[in-house]
Amino acid sequence: MIRIIMLGAPGSGKGTQAQLLSKYFLIPFISAGEILRQEIKKNDKTKNYIQNTINKGKLVKNSFIIQLIKKKIKKKKYCNGFILDGFPRTIEQAESLKKNINIQYIIYLKIKHDSIINRIQGRLIHEPSGRTYHKIFNPPKQKNKDDITGELLHKRKDDNKKIILTRLKEYEKYTKPLIKWFRKEIKKNKIKLLEINSNKSITDINKKIIHYINNFKK
């Protein structure tokens, strides 16, 4: 069983690496952002709240996303492991997760903020699956089409410079302290933390992560 948390600022490549690791280790990945987008489509009661929060570049309430993630990971599909992308993003979320499951690996992708803006502005997404692409760094095989379904890719509404800057402020406020929290946790528990420069190529980063995890599996 492998349980991985992907940490990093918006645009650091968490989603791309989660998808690649999912294929390699044959475990599903869970995208917190995709869960919220699905919730928008199926739940009229919370649709406006989620949409307005995301469009402002803010984080949804801890209690709200914690409930959705807990419900998700209880499904049989995830009993043999998973990769979490976009959760936890706060210490409160991490503490809640810790009470329910044992996480083995934390992969922290580090990147400078000026590089993030260029990355996010070129990002494309396949909304039904959550698969992500980039016009330059990770282009689809056919222009603007998902590699698997052939369906059209879209640019997220919150992938514009103004909202990106707000999201980065939220990251500095809530997620940066979370990384320090995890560094303390690895001393208490058997959690492994890999910090990696995500300015490298997608392939190089992926190889390093796989090598790191495989070494500890032996």
Rank of each mutant, 00 (worst) to 15 (best):
A32E: 01
I196L: 13
T166M: 11
Y212G: 02
A18V: 11
Q121M: 14
N118F: 15
P140A: 14
D44F: 09
N199M: 07
K162V: 09
I209H: 01
L165M: 06
G57Q: 06
K72G: 14
K190C: 07
P139K: 13
K42V: 10
K161A: 09
K47A: 15
E127W: 15
I27D: 04
K99G: 05
M1D: 03
Y212R: 00
K192G: 02
Q17T: 07
A32V: 03
G122K: 12
I65W: 07
H154L: 10
I125H: 01
S96A: 13
R123G: 12
P139G: 06
F82A: 10
Q19G: 04
K184G: 01
T132A: 10
K56M: 13
N138K: 12
D158I: 10
K58Y: 09
Q67M: 12
L194I: 07
E127R: 13
Q142S: 12
H126W: 12
T53E: 13
G130K: 01
N55C: 10
K74S: 14
K143E: 12
V60G: 03
R3I: 09
A94S: 08
Q104D: 14
K217V: 05
L21G: 00
H154V: 14
G122E: 05
N144F: 14
Y105Q: 08
I148L: 10
Q19W: 06
K75C: 08
Q142I: 14
T46I: 15
K45C: 06
L26D: 08
R123H: 10
I210Q: 01
T166W: 00
E151M: 09
T166C: 05
G15D: 06
E95G: 11
K184S: 05
S201I: 11
I66N: 15
K169Y: 04
Y174H: 05
P28R: 09
M1Q: 05
E39S: 13
D85V: 10
L165Y: 01
I125Y: 03
N214D: 07
K157A: 12
I5Y: 03
I101Y: 11
D114T: 15
K169H: 04
Q93K: 12
P128V: 10
Q51I: 08
M6F: 08
K188E: 07
L21A: 06
K141T: 11
Y24F: 11
N100C: 13
F25E: 01
D146Y: 03
S129V: 12
I120D: 02
